[in-house]
């Protein structure tokens, strides 16, 4: 009995030793020389492998950053400035801080604002739907509400609100990786700067239709009247093809356009509920709702 045990242990021990020696030499022979900094950079990266940086994943990002002469053209949207600063430090370089961005859904064609005129059947995907026809509402530019953006989001930051039928971005979870921007077949989602105190003003519509057509299809569409562009003191608003666009690099968050917009297509988020002038009261109506939503989200986190 005891000899069996001893024999077993001896056999296995010798075998183990033999293999470890073999493995050692094999490892020596087939060793791949790799820049050790790649591992360091990779360990700094968030490891989401989202592809938001334009690389195939975090490992590829690390490899390319180390290879590249300058870190300047690289940016990890998930880790943001702190991560980039750390990587720069690890590589002995300097990096400029970039302004934080957030995904903004530029359509408010909710179920209430935009009537459905037909019923879509088939695989529930915006891509399938948009390749087939303009969508189940009268607006061919608006959100289809099938949630391709929700599917691709790796950070649980964008969700279709079943009551409203359009996606909503959780600005605290959003890393501005841009996956939803690419996924949206109607190009409704845009990466905009987070703004001062996370306050943002944007045109929540992409309709290039004539005013009358837009009005018929949607209650809160941009009709291209141009009033906002006239009232903007900073020249941040341009109107092209019956559609206004606010350049966030020029916008100073004065909110004059919000008051002016006849269809309430311009949205201001994260501003205090109380507005300075009583004259603007009618236009504040949709705002408390958004602010409430955004603030509850903040409390949750």
């Amino acid at each position: 009995m005891s000899t069996t045990i001893i024999l077993t242990i001896a056999c296995l021990g010798v075998l183990g030793l033999l293999f470890s020696v073999v493995l050692y030499f094999v490892a020596q022979k087939f060793k791949v020389e790799e820049d050790p900094r790649i591992d360091i950079v990779e360990s700094i990266l968030p490891g989401a492998n989202c592809g938001g940086c334009g690389q195939a994943g975090c490992r590829a990002f690390a490899e390319n950053v180390v290879k590249a002469p300058s870190i300047g053209s690289f940016f990890c949207p998930v880790g943001g400035n702190p991560t980039m600063a750390e990587i720069a430090k690890a590589l002995g370089q300097e990096v400029e801080a970039k302004e934080p961005m957030v995904a903004v859904v530029r359509c408010h064609g909710t179920i209430d604002n935009r009537a459905k005129i037909n019923n879509f059947e088939g695989y529930s995907s915006c891509k399938v739907m948009s390749s087939l026809y303009i969508g189940d509402t009268g607006c061919k530019y608006g959100c289809l509400g099938k949630g391709d953006c929700e599917v691709v989001c790796k950070f649980d930051a964008i969700h279709i609100d079943p009551k409203r039928g359009i996606p909503e971005v959780n600005q605290d979870k959003c890393t501005a990786c841009g996956a939803c921007v690419k996924a949206c077949p109607k190009s409704i989602i845009e990466l905009r700067n987070k703004g001062l105190k996370e306050r943002r003003v944007y045109v929540s519509c992409l309709s290039k239709d004539k005013g009358a057509v837009t009005r018929k299809a949607c209650a809160v569409g941009c009709i291209g009247c141009g009033k906002c562009a006239k009232v903007c003191p900073f020249g941040a608003i341009t109107v092209e093809n019956n559609l206004a666009y606010i350049d966030f690099t020029k916008c100073k968050l004065c909110r004059k356009c919000v008051e002016e917009c006849p269809t309430k297509a311009i949205w201001a988020v994260n501003f205090p509920i109380k507005l300075p002038k009583s004259a603007t009261e009618p236009h504040t109506e949709p705002q408390p709702q958004t602010i409430e939503k955004e603030s509850t989200v903040q409390q949750e986190n």
């Binding site: 088939g122 695989y123 891509k127 399938v128 390749s131």
Partner: peptide, 9 residues
């Protein structure tokens, strides 16, 4: 299963 819908795109 909406096979063709998915395959088509």
């Amino acid at each position: 299963i909406p096979l063709l819908d998915i395959i088509r795109i």
